[in-house]
Design a protein around this nucleic acid. Structure first.
Lengths: 158, 158
DNA sequence: ACGGATGGACAACCTCGTTGACTATATGGA
DNA sequence: TCCATATAGTCAACGAGGTTGTCCATCCGT
Protein backbone atom coordinates (compact mmCIF):
# COMPACT_ATOMS: atom_id res chain seq x y z
CA UNK A 1 0.00 0.00 0.00
CA UNK A 2 1.39 3.37 -1.02
CA UNK A 3 0.48 6.94 -0.12
CA UNK A 4 -0.12 9.53 -2.80
CA UNK A 5 2.52 12.26 -2.75
CA UNK A 6 1.56 15.61 -1.26
CA UNK A 7 0.41 17.92 -4.05
CA UNK A 8 2.49 21.06 -4.52
CA UNK A 9 1.20 23.99 -2.52
CA UNK A 10 0.44 26.12 -5.54
CA UNK A 11 -2.14 23.71 -6.92
CA UNK A 12 -4.91 24.52 -4.44
CA UNK A 13 -5.04 28.28 -5.08
CA UNK A 14 -4.88 27.76 -8.82
CA UNK A 15 -7.70 25.24 -8.66
CA UNK A 16 -9.73 27.62 -6.52
CA UNK A 17 -9.37 30.33 -9.12
CA UNK A 18 -9.99 27.97 -12.02
CA UNK A 19 -13.14 26.65 -10.38
CA UNK A 20 -14.37 30.18 -9.75
CA UNK A 21 -13.69 31.17 -13.33
CA UNK A 22 -15.42 28.07 -14.63
CA UNK A 23 -18.53 28.85 -12.63
CA UNK A 24 -18.65 32.54 -13.47
CA UNK A 25 -18.00 31.92 -17.16
CA UNK A 26 -20.78 29.37 -17.25
CA UNK A 27 -23.12 31.78 -15.46
CA UNK A 28 -22.46 34.53 -17.94
CA UNK A 29 -22.82 32.24 -20.90
CA UNK A 30 -26.28 31.23 -19.71
CA UNK A 31 -27.41 34.68 -18.64
CA UNK A 32 -26.27 36.07 -21.99
CA UNK A 33 -28.53 33.54 -23.72
CA UNK A 34 -31.41 34.72 -21.52
CA UNK A 35 -31.23 38.27 -22.75
CA UNK A 36 -28.39 39.87 -20.80
CA UNK A 37 -25.40 39.70 -23.14
CA UNK A 38 -23.78 42.94 -21.96
CA UNK A 39 -22.89 41.88 -18.45
CA UNK A 40 -19.33 41.57 -17.22
CA UNK A 41 -18.21 39.43 -14.28
CA UNK A 42 -17.92 42.48 -12.05
CA UNK A 43 -21.46 43.65 -12.67
CA UNK A 44 -22.92 40.99 -10.43
CA UNK A 45 -20.86 42.41 -7.60
CA UNK A 46 -22.12 45.89 -8.35
CA UNK A 47 -25.76 44.76 -8.40
CA UNK A 48 -25.27 43.09 -5.05
CA UNK A 49 -23.63 46.24 -3.72
CA UNK A 50 -26.56 48.36 -4.86
CA UNK A 51 -28.95 46.05 -3.09
CA UNK A 52 -32.75 45.97 -3.11
CA UNK A 53 -33.20 49.39 -1.51
CA UNK A 54 -30.88 51.33 -3.74
CA UNK A 55 -27.84 53.26 -2.64
CA UNK A 56 -25.78 56.33 -3.47
CA UNK A 57 -22.53 56.79 -5.32
CA UNK A 58 -20.60 57.46 -2.14
CA UNK A 59 -21.96 54.40 -0.37
CA UNK A 60 -21.45 52.26 -3.47
CA UNK A 61 -17.84 53.36 -3.70
CA UNK A 62 -17.35 52.50 -0.06
CA UNK A 63 -18.76 48.99 -0.56
CA UNK A 64 -16.78 48.35 -3.73
CA UNK A 65 -13.59 49.75 -2.30
CA UNK A 66 -13.24 52.46 -4.94
CA UNK A 67 -13.55 56.25 -4.94
CA UNK A 68 -16.93 57.89 -5.20
CA UNK A 69 -15.93 59.21 -8.63
CA UNK A 70 -15.16 55.72 -9.90
CA UNK A 71 -18.45 54.49 -8.50
CA UNK A 72 -20.17 57.35 -10.30
CA UNK A 73 -18.65 56.28 -13.61
CA UNK A 74 -19.72 52.69 -13.04
CA UNK A 75 -23.25 53.86 -12.31
CA UNK A 76 -23.29 55.92 -15.47
CA UNK A 77 -22.31 52.89 -17.53
CA UNK A 78 -24.96 50.67 -15.97
CA UNK A 79 -27.50 53.43 -16.44
CA UNK A 80 -26.80 53.53 -20.16
CA UNK A 81 -27.19 49.74 -20.30
CA UNK A 82 -30.58 50.13 -18.62
CA UNK A 83 -29.80 48.19 -15.45
CA UNK A 84 -30.02 51.04 -12.96
CA UNK A 85 -31.84 54.36 -12.72
CA UNK A 86 -31.05 57.44 -10.70
CA UNK A 87 -33.67 59.27 -8.72
CA UNK A 88 -33.64 62.05 -6.17
CA UNK A 89 -34.11 61.66 -2.45
CA UNK A 90 -36.99 63.85 -1.19
CA UNK A 91 -35.51 63.76 2.28
CA UNK A 92 -32.06 64.97 1.20
CA UNK A 93 -31.63 67.06 -1.93
CA UNK A 94 -27.92 66.22 -2.13
CA UNK A 95 -28.41 62.49 -2.50
CA UNK A 96 -29.18 60.79 -5.78
CA UNK A 97 -30.45 57.31 -5.13
CA UNK A 98 -29.40 54.58 -7.53
CA UNK A 99 -31.89 51.74 -7.88
CA UNK A 100 -32.03 48.63 -10.00
CA UNK A 101 -34.51 48.88 -12.84
CA UNK A 102 -36.90 46.05 -13.67
CA UNK A 103 -34.25 44.84 -16.06
CA UNK A 104 -31.66 44.91 -13.28
CA UNK A 105 -33.96 43.02 -10.93
CA UNK A 106 -34.68 40.49 -13.67
CA UNK A 107 -30.97 39.99 -14.14
CA UNK A 108 -30.40 39.49 -10.43
CA UNK A 109 -33.23 36.96 -10.20
CA UNK A 110 -31.92 35.01 -13.18
CA UNK A 111 -28.44 35.02 -11.68
CA UNK A 112 -29.73 33.54 -8.45
CA UNK A 113 -31.68 30.85 -10.32
CA UNK A 114 -28.74 29.95 -12.55
CA UNK A 115 -26.40 29.75 -9.56
CA UNK A 116 -28.81 27.33 -7.92
CA UNK A 117 -29.03 25.29 -11.12
CA UNK A 118 -25.24 25.15 -11.34
CA UNK A 119 -24.98 24.04 -7.75
CA UNK A 120 -27.48 21.27 -8.46
CA UNK A 121 -25.33 20.14 -11.36
CA UNK A 122 -22.19 20.05 -9.23
CA UNK A 123 -24.14 18.17 -6.61
CA UNK A 124 -25.01 15.59 -9.24
CA UNK A 125 -21.37 15.40 -10.32
CA UNK A 126 -19.69 15.18 -6.93
CA UNK A 127 -22.54 13.89 -4.81
CA UNK A 128 -24.30 16.18 -2.40
CA UNK A 129 -22.28 14.92 0.53
CA UNK A 130 -18.91 15.65 -1.02
CA UNK A 131 -20.11 19.05 -2.25
CA UNK A 132 -21.13 19.95 1.28
CA UNK A 133 -17.78 18.82 2.62
CA UNK A 134 -16.13 21.05 0.03
CA UNK A 135 -18.26 24.01 1.06
CA UNK A 136 -17.54 23.30 4.73
CA UNK A 137 -13.82 23.14 4.05
CA UNK A 138 -13.91 26.45 2.23
CA UNK A 139 -15.82 28.05 5.09
CA UNK A 140 -13.01 27.01 7.40
CA UNK A 141 -10.27 28.15 5.04
CA UNK A 142 -11.95 31.45 4.25
CA UNK A 143 -14.39 32.30 7.02
CA UNK A 144 -16.40 35.47 7.18
CA UNK A 145 -18.64 37.29 4.82
CA UNK A 146 -18.15 35.96 1.31
CA UNK A 147 -19.40 39.25 -0.13
CA UNK A 148 -16.07 40.96 -0.42
CA UNK A 149 -17.14 43.56 -2.89
CA UNK A 150 -13.80 45.15 -3.59
CA UNK A 151 -12.71 42.19 -5.68
CA UNK A 152 -12.91 43.72 -9.15
CA UNK A 153 -10.27 46.21 -8.17
CA UNK A 154 -8.15 43.63 -6.37
CA UNK A 155 -6.13 42.66 -9.39
CA UNK A 156 -4.47 45.62 -11.00
CA UNK A 157 -2.09 48.23 -9.77
CA UNK A 158 -1.54 49.65 -6.29
CA UNK B 1 -33.26 14.25 12.86
CA UNK B 2 -33.15 17.28 10.57
CA UNK B 3 -31.27 18.05 7.37
CA UNK B 4 -29.38 21.26 6.91
CA UNK B 5 -30.92 23.43 4.22
CA UNK B 6 -29.17 23.53 0.88
CA UNK B 7 -26.86 26.55 0.75
CA UNK B 8 -27.67 29.11 -1.90
CA UNK B 9 -25.87 28.49 -5.17
CA UNK B 10 -23.93 31.73 -5.09
CA UNK B 11 -22.08 30.84 -1.90
CA UNK B 12 -19.68 28.32 -3.42
CA UNK B 13 -18.22 30.61 -6.10
CA UNK B 14 -17.86 33.46 -3.65
CA UNK B 15 -16.09 31.19 -1.17
CA UNK B 16 -13.81 29.94 -3.92
CA UNK B 17 -12.81 33.49 -4.74
CA UNK B 18 -12.49 34.50 -1.10
CA UNK B 19 -10.26 31.50 -0.38
CA UNK B 20 -8.11 32.29 -3.39
CA UNK B 21 -7.75 35.91 -2.33
CA UNK B 22 -6.90 34.90 1.21
CA UNK B 23 -4.12 32.61 0.02
CA UNK B 24 -2.66 35.05 -2.49
CA UNK B 25 -2.80 37.95 -0.06
CA UNK B 26 -1.01 35.87 2.55
CA UNK B 27 1.61 34.81 0.00
CA UNK B 28 2.34 38.38 -0.97
CA UNK B 29 2.48 39.54 2.60
CA UNK B 30 5.14 36.94 3.35
CA UNK B 31 7.12 37.35 0.15
CA UNK B 32 7.15 41.12 0.68
CA UNK B 33 8.74 40.53 4.09
CA UNK B 34 11.38 38.37 2.40
CA UNK B 35 12.63 41.12 0.15
CA UNK B 36 10.13 41.27 -2.71
CA UNK B 37 7.75 44.06 -1.79
CA UNK B 38 7.06 45.24 -5.33
CA UNK B 39 5.24 42.18 -6.57
CA UNK B 40 1.59 42.21 -7.59
CA UNK B 41 -0.71 39.20 -7.72
CA UNK B 42 -0.39 38.96 -11.48
CA UNK B 43 3.41 38.86 -11.47
CA UNK B 44 3.50 35.26 -10.31
CA UNK B 45 1.50 34.34 -13.38
CA UNK B 46 3.93 36.22 -15.58
CA UNK B 47 6.95 34.49 -14.04
CA UNK B 48 5.33 31.13 -14.63
CA UNK B 49 4.55 32.13 -18.20
CA UNK B 50 8.16 33.11 -18.80
CA UNK B 51 9.31 29.73 -17.54
CA UNK B 52 12.82 28.44 -16.86
CA UNK B 53 14.00 28.64 -20.47
CA UNK B 54 12.90 32.19 -21.19
CA UNK B 55 10.47 33.29 -23.83
CA UNK B 56 9.70 36.17 -26.18
CA UNK B 57 7.19 38.99 -26.03
CA UNK B 58 4.96 37.42 -28.66
CA UNK B 59 4.93 34.03 -26.97
CA UNK B 60 4.39 35.63 -23.57
CA UNK B 61 1.44 37.57 -24.89
CA UNK B 62 -0.01 34.37 -26.33
CA UNK B 63 0.29 32.58 -22.98
CA UNK B 64 -1.12 35.48 -21.00
CA UNK B 65 -3.93 36.10 -23.45
CA UNK B 66 -2.89 39.68 -24.21
CA UNK B 67 -1.43 41.45 -27.23
CA UNK B 68 2.30 41.35 -27.88
CA UNK B 69 2.43 45.08 -27.20
CA UNK B 70 0.89 44.64 -23.76
CA UNK B 71 3.28 41.78 -23.04
CA UNK B 72 6.14 44.05 -24.08
CA UNK B 73 5.04 46.71 -21.62
CA UNK B 74 4.78 44.15 -18.84
CA UNK B 75 8.29 42.90 -19.62
CA UNK B 76 9.60 46.45 -19.55
CA UNK B 77 8.14 46.97 -16.10
CA UNK B 78 9.58 43.74 -14.74
CA UNK B 79 12.92 44.58 -16.31
CA UNK B 80 13.01 47.88 -14.42
CA UNK B 81 12.20 46.02 -11.20
CA UNK B 82 15.12 43.71 -11.90
CA UNK B 83 13.16 40.48 -12.22
CA UNK B 84 13.78 39.77 -15.91
CA UNK B 85 16.50 40.57 -18.44
CA UNK B 86 16.34 40.69 -22.23
CA UNK B 87 18.95 39.11 -24.45
CA UNK B 88 19.27 38.47 -28.14
CA UNK B 89 18.83 35.13 -29.89
CA UNK B 90 21.93 34.24 -31.97
CA UNK B 91 19.80 31.92 -34.09
CA UNK B 92 17.20 34.57 -34.97
CA UNK B 93 18.07 38.23 -34.96
CA UNK B 94 14.41 39.23 -34.70
CA UNK B 95 13.83 37.53 -31.36
CA UNK B 96 14.69 39.05 -28.00
CA UNK B 97 14.63 36.38 -25.35
CA UNK B 98 13.29 37.33 -21.94
CA UNK B 99 14.74 35.39 -19.02
CA UNK B 100 14.30 35.54 -15.27
CA UNK B 101 17.22 37.12 -13.44
CA UNK B 102 18.66 35.63 -10.27
CA UNK B 103 16.28 37.87 -8.42
CA UNK B 104 13.39 36.51 -10.46
CA UNK B 105 14.44 32.93 -9.82
CA UNK B 106 14.83 33.70 -6.11
CA UNK B 107 11.32 35.09 -6.08
CA UNK B 108 9.93 32.03 -7.82
CA UNK B 109 11.69 29.68 -5.40
CA UNK B 110 10.41 31.61 -2.38
CA UNK B 111 6.88 31.55 -3.81
CA UNK B 112 7.01 27.79 -4.16
CA UNK B 113 8.29 27.35 -0.62
CA UNK B 114 5.69 29.72 0.85
CA UNK B 115 2.90 27.97 -1.04
CA UNK B 116 4.05 24.66 0.47
CA UNK B 117 4.19 26.23 3.92
CA UNK B 118 0.68 27.60 3.51
CA UNK B 119 -0.60 24.22 2.38
CA UNK B 120 0.97 22.63 5.46
CA UNK B 121 -0.87 25.17 7.62
CA UNK B 122 -4.20 24.42 5.93
CA UNK B 123 -3.49 20.74 6.37
CA UNK B 124 -3.05 21.35 10.08
CA UNK B 125 -6.29 23.32 10.20
CA UNK B 126 -8.52 21.01 8.19
CA UNK B 127 -6.68 17.73 8.58
CA UNK B 128 -4.74 16.29 5.69
CA UNK B 129 -7.58 13.98 4.73
CA UNK B 130 -10.18 16.70 4.39
CA UNK B 131 -7.75 18.95 2.52
CA UNK B 132 -7.13 16.17 0.00
CA UNK B 133 -10.84 15.64 -0.41
CA UNK B 134 -11.20 19.35 -1.08
CA UNK B 135 -8.44 19.25 -3.68
CA UNK B 136 -10.00 16.16 -5.25
CA UNK B 137 -13.37 17.84 -5.43
CA UNK B 138 -11.89 20.89 -7.08
CA UNK B 139 -10.10 18.73 -9.63
CA UNK B 140 -13.47 17.26 -10.56
CA UNK B 141 -15.21 20.63 -10.66
CA UNK B 142 -12.42 22.31 -12.61
CA UNK B 143 -10.40 19.69 -14.42
CA UNK B 144 -7.52 20.39 -16.72
CA UNK B 145 -4.40 22.46 -16.48
CA UNK B 146 -4.70 24.87 -13.57
CA UNK B 147 -2.22 27.21 -15.22
CA UNK B 148 -4.69 29.38 -17.04
CA UNK B 149 -2.41 32.30 -17.54
CA UNK B 150 -4.85 34.76 -19.02
CA UNK B 151 -6.45 35.35 -15.66
CA UNK B 152 -5.17 38.84 -14.87
CA UNK B 153 -7.01 40.15 -17.88
CA UNK B 154 -10.09 38.09 -17.21
CA UNK B 155 -11.84 40.69 -15.15
CA UNK B 156 -12.09 43.99 -16.93
CA UNK B 157 -13.72 45.07 -20.10
CA UNK B 158 -14.32 43.19 -23.34
C1' DA C 1 -27.63 81.65 11.48
C1' DC C 2 -23.56 79.96 10.52
C1' DG C 3 -19.52 76.66 9.93
C1' DG C 4 -18.26 72.15 9.24
C1' DA C 5 -19.47 67.79 7.11
C1' DT C 6 -21.41 65.37 3.32
C1' DG C 7 -23.03 64.08 -1.66
C1' DG C 8 -22.23 64.86 -6.28
C1' DA C 9 -19.89 66.49 -10.48
C1' DC C 10 -15.98 68.14 -13.32
C1' DA C 11 -11.12 68.13 -14.76
C1' DA C 12 -6.53 66.38 -15.12
C1' DC C 13 -3.81 62.56 -14.85
C1' DC C 14 -2.08 57.52 -14.55
C1' DT C 15 -1.96 52.62 -15.69
C1' DC C 16 -2.69 49.18 -18.72
C1' DG C 17 -5.02 47.31 -22.12
C1' DT C 18 -6.31 47.81 -27.27
C1' DT C 19 -5.51 48.41 -32.70
C1' DG C 20 -2.85 50.09 -36.58
C1' DA C 21 1.33 51.03 -38.94
C1' DC C 22 6.05 50.37 -39.60
C1' DT C 23 10.82 48.11 -39.71
C1' DA C 24 13.93 44.25 -39.62
C1' DT C 25 14.61 39.58 -40.21
C1' DA C 26 13.48 34.54 -41.69
C1' DT C 27 11.82 31.41 -44.73
C1' DG C 28 9.92 28.86 -48.58
C1' DG C 29 8.75 28.45 -53.43
C1' DA C 30 9.18 29.93 -58.56
C1' DT D 1 18.70 33.42 -56.55
C1' DC D 2 15.14 36.38 -55.63
C1' DC D 3 10.95 37.74 -54.13
C1' DA D 4 6.53 37.15 -51.42
C1' DT D 5 4.98 36.24 -47.18
C1' DA D 6 5.13 35.52 -42.30
C1' DT D 7 7.01 36.76 -37.91
C1' DA D 8 9.33 39.66 -33.85
C1' DG D 9 9.59 43.93 -32.01
C1' DT D 10 8.56 48.92 -31.54
C1' DC D 11 6.07 53.35 -31.81
C1' DA D 12 1.84 56.08 -31.77
C1' DA D 13 -2.93 56.97 -30.81
C1' DC D 14 -6.67 55.73 -28.35
C1' DG D 15 -10.10 53.94 -24.64
C1' DA D 16 -11.59 52.05 -20.21
C1' DG D 17 -11.41 52.73 -15.66
C1' DG D 18 -9.11 53.94 -11.82
C1' DT D 19 -6.88 58.03 -8.97
C1' DT D 20 -6.59 62.91 -6.71
C1' DG D 21 -7.93 67.73 -6.42
C1' DT D 22 -11.39 71.14 -6.60
C1' DC D 23 -15.72 73.15 -6.39
C1' DC D 24 -20.61 73.73 -5.29
C1' DA D 25 -25.09 72.61 -3.13
C1' DT D 26 -27.14 70.90 0.74
C1' DC D 27 -27.68 69.23 5.44
C1' DC D 28 -27.10 69.67 10.49
C1' DG D 29 -25.30 70.73 15.27
C1' DT D 30 -24.13 74.43 18.09
Amino acid sequence: MSTDPTPPGFELPLRLLLAFRTIIDELHERIAREGHPDLRPMHGFVFQAIGPHGTTAVELGRRLGVSKQAAGKTIEGLEQLGYVARGSDPADARRKVVRLTDRGVDCLARSARIFDELRAEWSATLGEEQLRRLEDGLRQLAPGDPFRLDTPRWFGTP
